[in-house]
Computed example of a mutant assay.
Amino acid sequence: MKKRIVLYKRLSDALLARLHQHVEVTYVDTTGKDGLARLRDALPGAHGLLGASLRLDHSLLDLAPQLQVVSSVSVGVDNYDIAELTRRGVLLTNTPDVLTETTADTGFALILASARRVVELANWVRDGHWQANLGPSHFGCDVHGKTLGIVGMGRIGEALARRGAAGFGMRVLYHSSRPKPEVDARHGAQYRSLDALLSEADFVCLTVPLSSSTEELIGARELALMKPEAILVNIARGRVVNERALIDALREQRIRAAGLDVFVQEPLPVDSPLLHLANVVATPHIGSATQETREAMARCAVENLLSALAGQRPANLVNEQAWGNGQPNNTIAT
């Protein structure tokens, strides 16, 4: 008998067909007003879950006593109580690697758009204000040859470093849990303490995962360390930054600008002060949002799920401690 999974993300026909070969699929659209209720109805008897952006609390997990794997179509796993999943013997998988380059592209797009005031001036032209040559009040700042500070030197951080050093001749500084000599050698990067990086960098780009140690990592004190002409770019998670402190710093022009793809509340409320500041470029969490990358992420998530349900160790297992911890032996054949 096929195992049963609950799918709460739309997939391409090819990936849906791949799932149907091996498992019974129940699709739940969780975006509607009764989406959560439909999900709750679908959970009993589920052996696997596949989707993204769903916060699984104890009450939902209690409805799925046969659950073996949660396959998230994301690299970030801050939506999940990893300790609780591990305690229950439920594997959690994610989709790293496949979104690295695309997310780094997004980070550099925000660097360029913020520095050259692309969105602000494009809207200025669209509104019919371009009646004469530009003057100094409309000038942006250069990116090439400047100092790029990267907070979080993982896969995405290194992809940014490569773009900055090789493409724009930038001096690269980084802060992470430890110095990484291999990164230094590849990109001429230099390790700094967080405070030193903030005070030296012209562009500060955040790529850290969200955790108890990184929540509000950048607050009023840290923003005060940045140069007045510096730009903050956040492609990590919204809660890595104290949003109120950032709004104050931008309003008072204590930093030049910010390029933001992530926010404390998503979607960003229409009354957010960030939407009314000319020195903010705000995008709707598009870090990995290309057709090619989203399909690759979904494909990775499908293979993670099928591997786990077949009793094979998934390629992208997040909670290693759950492997072999209470996993049922009744697996599927792939």
Rank of each mutant, 00 (worst) to 15 (best):
M1A: 13
K3W: 02
R4H: 10
R4V: 00
V6I: 02
V6K: 03
Y8N: 13
R10K: 15
L15M: 07
L15H: 13
A17C: 00
Q21N: 11
V23N: 04
V23C: 04
V23A: 08
V28R: 09
G32E: 04
K33Y: 03
L36D: 09
A42E: 01
P44T: 10
A46L: 06
G51M: 08
A52Q: 14
L54C: 09
L56W: 15
H58W: 03
L61P: 06
D62N: 14
V75D: 08
G76M: 05
Y80T: 12
D81K: 12
E84I: 04
L91M: 12
N94V: 04
T95H: 03
P96E: 08
P96Y: 07
L99Q: 11
E101K: 03
G107Q: 09
L112A: 12
S114R: 05
A115I: 02
R116C: 05
R117S: 14
A122C: 02
N123Y: 07
V125R: 09
D127W: 02
A132W: 09
A132I: 03
C141A: 14
V143D: 05
I156E: 11
R162L: 00
G164H: 01
A165I: 00
V172S: 03
L173C: 01
P179F: 02
R186W: 00
R186N: 05
G188E: 04
A189S: 12
A189N: 04
Y191C: 07
D195W: 04
A196K: 14
A201R: 08
D202C: 02
V204Y: 01
S213L: 12
T214R: 11
E216N: 15
E216F: 11
L223F: 01
I231F: 03
V233C: 05
R244S: 14
D248Y: 02
L250P: 10
E252Q: 13
I255A: 02
A257K: 02
V264S: 15
P267E: 12
P269A: 09
P269E: 10
D271F: 07
L274W: 11
L274F: 08
H276L: 10
L277C: 05
L277N: 10
N279R: 06
I286R: 10
I286P: 13
G287A: 14
T290K: 08
C300T: 15
L305Q: 08
N319W: 08
Q321C: 00
A322F: 07
A322D: 09
A322T: 08
N325P: 00
A333S: 14
A333F: 09
